[in-house]
Design a protein around this nucleic acid. Structure first.
Lengths: 180, 180
DNA sequence: GATGTTTGTGAGTGCACACTTACAAACATG
DNA sequence: CATGTTTGTAAGTGTGCACTCACAAACATC
């Protein structure tokens, strides 16, 4: 026994978020996750209920980490007004353009919502994030909605690689989106 | 010879957009597209350069149809001011919540942007749409950006099924998004 | 140190699916 | 109506991958 099952699950989930973020649910073999986590494929299947169970658990971990990122960002704004806190959270979220895992995983999860378990996990995740943003910032419904709208735009920018496109239409879409 | 190859390609592309929209690139077997188009799998492979070629062609057809939808929407606003035209285009786009194919295909395409050919097709598609929205409405960069941000929010709402969620956080995200 | 439990793996099994090939029928053209 | 071309398919082939199982080693407890 080198490690407890619970600790293994945590490292596997980190590997899973990264792997699924890059190649998506169906194109990511469990072998790849197992290799990234440094254990055998068979043991991954003992730790999680099938590939789907692994993906759903990874979704939970992903949204958990997103809340942590936003919380850290909000901390930098202290207890200023809603606009300032939202702005700080936006900056924090924009940092995910560099460390793409959390951003891309959401895109991948949205693409598998034809599987009911995944759809449920996505709803649960956004519920966590939305209620946190709302309560931590004290912003209005419309402001929260705008926050998520531009967050989703961020997903498009990253997946399509629009930061690299110098043409005017792409500059218009990426304007004001700050990255580190 | 029941049909010309070009006509076949068109019907296959329609079937492909629908099929890929629902289950995505990797989880959609070419057999499914062929069956929906009413021809054999082998012939699909003769009409298109592999599954990837089919998907890329379907992406082209998808964005083409999106421009048509937006154009029809803009037509209803005539040549009013930018805000009015954008509003009309927004209404037209929101109708895609009902006929989900065009909306979901974009989500699926964004999820396969690790394949360079798909990334390129997505960029080309959004270039078409963005330049059209810009020139047809005469709106500012910031307005166009906002248009796309809320469009992407629309994708989240549909994939996660948030219209069906009565809780306050979901209502906040879906507020003002009009569906028929 | 014998027994039980948890952690871990190697070697399979079966199936789904991308892609090919060999062949047939419909149509055109002289 | 012979010859060539395009449209179409049935029946494979090979491979990748989800998932299982039998078995082994580390650890705990008495």
């Amino acid at each position: 026994m080198r490690s407890t099952a619970e600790a293994r699950r945590a490292t596997v989930l980190n590997a899973a978020v990264s792997a699924f973020a890059r190649t998506g649910f169906h194109a990511t073999p469990v072998t790849a996750v197992a290799a990234a986590a440094g254990i055998s494929e068979a043991y991954v299947f003992r730790l999680f209920a099938g590939k789907l169970g692994l993906f759903v658990a990874a979704a939970g971990a992903c949204f958990e980490r997103i809340v942590v990122v936003l919380e850290a960002g909000a901390e930098r704004a202290g207890d200023a007004g809603p606009e300032e806190v939202l702005e700080a959270m936006g900056d924090a979220y924009a940092e995910l353009i560099a460390d793409r895992d959390l951003l891309l995983f959401q895109v991948q999860a949205q693409a598998v919502t034809d599987v009911p378990e995944v759809a449920e996990a996505v709803r649960a995740g956004y519920k966590r994030v939305a209620t946190f943003v709302r309560s931590r910032s004290g912003a209005s419904d419309a402001q929260v909605q705008q926050f998520f709208a531009y967050g989703q735009l961020c997903h498009l920018i990253v997946t399509a690689g629009l930061e690299q496109v110098p043409e005017p239409w792409a500059r218009a879409l990426t304007a004001g989106i700050r990255h580190p």
